[in-house]
């Protein structure tokens, strides 16, 4: 197996995630796309771990950390979406344009 086949797959998945983040209107779907990006990072980490034959499995450990952090991120992210939804009656990121002020 080539290392690059995994890395390219990761890159493709990451780019798809970026595309999703950029184009999705619904905030929940934006979070979904972020999950795709994180999954892509995990693939890279594990592939590198395997490639460098690390005795301490650092790549895998960090993939686990990424998963944990991602779980935390989803929790907080959904809580924020929920809060905005309550205030604005919409989960549509189009309507969060307060940065323009």
């Amino acid at each position: 197996m080539l290392i690059n086949q995994f890395l390219l797959l990761g890159a493709a998945l990451f780019s798809l995630g970026v595309y999703g983040v950029l184009t999705r209107k619904n905030a929940v779907l934006v979070l979904l796309s972020v999950e795709l990006m994180l999954a892509a990072v995990n693939i890279n980490l594990v592939a590198f771990d395997r490639y460098f034959v690390d005795t301490e499995a650092a790549g895998q450990v960090f993939a686990l950390f990424v998963i944990t952090v991602a779980a935390a991120e989803v929790g907080i992210g959904l809580a924020i979406v929920l809060l905005i939804f309550r205030v604005r009656k919409s989960a549509n990121v189009d309507e969060f344009d307060l940065m323009k002020l």
């Binding site: 290392i3 995994f6 970026v18 950029l22 184009t23």
Partner: peptide, 25 residues
């Protein structure tokens, strides 16, 4: 957005290909 993400893919991909070439797991 599609153009940007595709360019991102090209950048990451070409870097990876350039760096690891035919290296095998």
């Amino acid at each position: 957005a599609a153009i940007v993400s595709f360019a991102l893919f090209l950048v990451i991909g070409s870097t990876m290909v350039g760096a690891f070439k035919d290296d095998v797991i």
